[in-house]
Design a protein around this nucleic acid. Structure first.
Length: 627
DNA sequence: CTATCTATGACAGGTACCTT
DNA sequence: AAGGTACCTGTCATAGATAG
């Protein structure tokens, strides 16, 4: 079965290979559609005020369909243009600007050695080796990021591996004195001697496991949010500097792809086979020439015929325009930029050496004040993101995050109260302020700034400290219910154990259908069938553009997926960036979207504490989801 | 300024899988 | 490290836009 890649699909009868590919594409489409529908549905509620297209007709789904439409547009445009040019090229009556455009690109390409002989050894530039300190810092960031990333499920074992697993123990037991390697060799040899029939059960088992894997993968995929990709890209970049290997980032299906440049559009067109009996348009046929020869000849042609550039430029420009628009929309919808900023801050904070510990009581106070201030900012509609970590990168303790959540919750619940409380608090906190200032003299400048920020918001702090105390109380009671204390931030275990069956849409039979990074697994269609090469091909990231292009209009992001998000786990109901985008929890009912904020005004202290604890759990879950 | 992304398919080399 | 398998990834040619 060891067939060169690319041959499998090409050489196989269409019935099997294409059915597989189709099933795969469909599965991906469904998974993506589901993922996006869920994501977008969640986002919609939270982002509607930021989304100019809030008429419910154009968010992510619109993006999806327009991507395909763009491709179609381009295709037809290319054809049109090509046909129009068939008569030969008139020297394009291009304006000065256009000429400049051309001139600016052409010399650039000419100055580059185009053919092999002059090619520089490598396009890659050696990244300077990070020094020891840098390395350590990068390592810190690397570890931190890695914890936040939920890797795709491990691939299922092959039939052979299943066989080894089944047979090895017995073989080893039969000959305990023999070294494991010898036993393994023996078992491996016996695999080689198996007939197809004998292999059958193992093949079947492998298929079964593969199916399971498909389900796990679909779950994993559907739980992804756009910010996951940001984290992965960051990790990838850092890993590169550290020369470590990590999985390639998997772009979110809603993320628009860069459009093809004029040259690639030209290549794509040139790939079209000439009608039977006709010679290849550009003197080289994709069918006959190897990819390198094909590209070389066409590149030569491209350079010698500036009109080629002209021909595709318009198409490209329109695509670029569309791409920029969609990208901007994507960024807005998912609040990508804010997330990046926040991430950068957190990463930076990781490598700032932690300030010298201040006297215990005081530092706790300062921390509480800071937390409360941050929470207040959030409650007041700022862009604060619930913190899961200290600025120094340490994870918040349960107590602290509880305090934070409680503070935010309480503040939201008593927003109207706040102003009055502030006045009272100001008085009470003159002392605390003085304390902060005194501290500021002792610590580094950075800490001073933080203290100043805390002091600025200290008037709110008094108010929140009350609630932090409440929270401590709650924590105390809480200790008897450890199950509620599970730390939410374990992205390594992102699955939804409560809903193991949650991939009903998964079509039956396509082993390894959805590997996250699998660029060449189904390397397109046969050259004779490449009418939709751009639209239907899996992207180099393994995320096909097709599924998204086929995104059903019915699954508009504003309408929750029919299945709805899974409960619990990732399904806490929080969009990835809601914290960033909306610091106003009062507007949407709070972190868990379950009205978890604060306690009813008239409830007992205990009930209040419990409610706050709940809010904390929800907030924490939300934070976990976000990161 | 440089790396990356976008397209393409063949192919070589690498890696995960498992266990001791 | 051993075994075999299947999949993964980088490379090759190339231009131009964009991200960092």
């Amino acid at each position: 079965m060891s067939v060169p890649r690319g041959f499998t699909t090409h050489g196989m009868p269409t019935s099997h290979a294409q059915a597989q590919a189709q099933a795969q594409a469909q599965a991906q489409a469904q998974a993506h559609a589901q993922a996006f529908a869920m994501q977008a549905a969640l986002s919609q509620a939270h982002f509607s005020m930021h989304n100019p297209n809030d008429d419910g007709t154009n968010t992510g789904a619109g993006t999806a369909t327009t991507v395909t439409t763009a491709d179609d547009d381009i295709k037809s445009q290319i054809t049109m243009d090509t046909n129009g040019l068939e008569s030969g090229l008139h020297t394009p009556s291009i304006g000065g600007e256009d000429t400049d455009d051309l001139a600016s690109t052409t010399p650039k390409s000419e100055s580059k050695p185009t053919l092999k002989e002059g090619k520089p050894a490598s396009r890659k530039k050696e990244v300077p080796e990070p020094d020891a300190a840098d390395k350590k810092a990068l390592m810190t960031q690397f570890t931190w990021l890695k914890k936040k990333i939920s890797p795709p499920p491990a691939r299922p074992p092959s039939a052979y591996q299943t066989f080894i697993k089944a047979r090895f123990p017995a073989a080893k037991a039969a000959n305990p004195a023999a070294p494991a390697t010898a036993v393994l060799s023996e078992v491996a040899a016996s695999w080689g001697k198996l007939t197809d029939v004998e292999r059958g059960p193992f093949e079947n088992e492998a298929k079964r496991l593969s199916k399971e894997y498909d389900g796990r993968y679909a779950n994993w995929l559907s739980a992804r949010v756009p910010s996951d990709t940001i984290l992965e890209r960051k990790l990838y970049a850092i890993a590169k500097r550290l020369k470590k290997k990590v999985a390639k980032p998997v772009p979110h299906p809603a993320e628009p792809k860069q459009p093809l440049g004029p040259f690639l559009l030209f290549l794509q067109e040139a790939r079209e086979l000439p009608p039977a009996g006709q010679k290849a348009k550009y003197g080289v046929s994709f069918d006959n020439a190897g990819i390198t020869e094909f590209t070389r000849v066409l590149t030569k042609y491209y350079k010698e015929h500036p009109d080629t550039f002209e021909r595709f430029r318009d198409v490209n420009e329109r695509s670029q325009e569309k791409y920029r628009r969609e990208l901007a929309e994507f960024h807005t919808t998912f609040n990508i930029d804010a997330f990046k900023r926040q991430l950068d801050e957190e990463l930076k904070a990781l490598i700032v050496p932690p300030p010298k510990p201040a006297p215990k009581g005081a530092s706790k106070k300062a921390q509480a004040a800071e937390l409360a201030a941050a929470a207040a900012q959030a409650a007041a509609g700022g862009h604060h993101n619930p913190m899961t970590h200290h600025p120094n990168g340490k994870r918040l303790t349960k107590k602290e995050s509880a305090a934070q959540a409680a503070a935010a919750a309480a503040h939201a619940a008593h927003a109207a109260h706040a102003a009055a409380a502030v006045q009272q608090a100001q008085q009470a906190h003159a002392v605390a302020q003085a304390h902060a200032v005194a501290q500021a003299q002792q610590v580094a400048a950075a800490q001073a700034a933080a203290a100043a920020a805390a002091a600025q918001a200290a008037h709110v702090a008094a108010f929140h400290q009350q609630h932090a105390q409440h929270q401590q109380h709650a924590q105390h009671q809480h200790a008897q219910h450890p199950h509620q204390h599970q730390h939410p931030q374990h992205p390594q275990h992102p699955q939804h154990p409560q809903h193991p069956q949650q991939h009903p849409q998964h079509p039956g039979h396509h082993p390894h259908a959805q590997h996250p990074v699998h660029p060449g697994q189904h390397p397109g269609q046969h050259p004779g069938q490449h009418q939709a090469a751009a639209a239907g091909r899996p992207s180099p990231y393994g995320v096909s553009s097709q599924p998204y292009g086929h995104h059903q209009p019915g699954q508009h992001p504003s309408q929750p997926s029919p299945q709805g998000p899974p409960h619990g786990g990732h399904g806490a109901g929080l969009p990835p960036s809601s914290h960033l985008q909306h610091g106003n929890p009062g507007a949407n009912g709070g972190y868990g979207a379950h009205g978890g904020y604060g306690a009813p005004p008239g409830s007992s202290a205990q009930a209040q504490a419990q409610a706050q604890a709940q809010a904390q759990a929800q907030a924490a879950a939300a934070a976990a989801h976000f990161f």
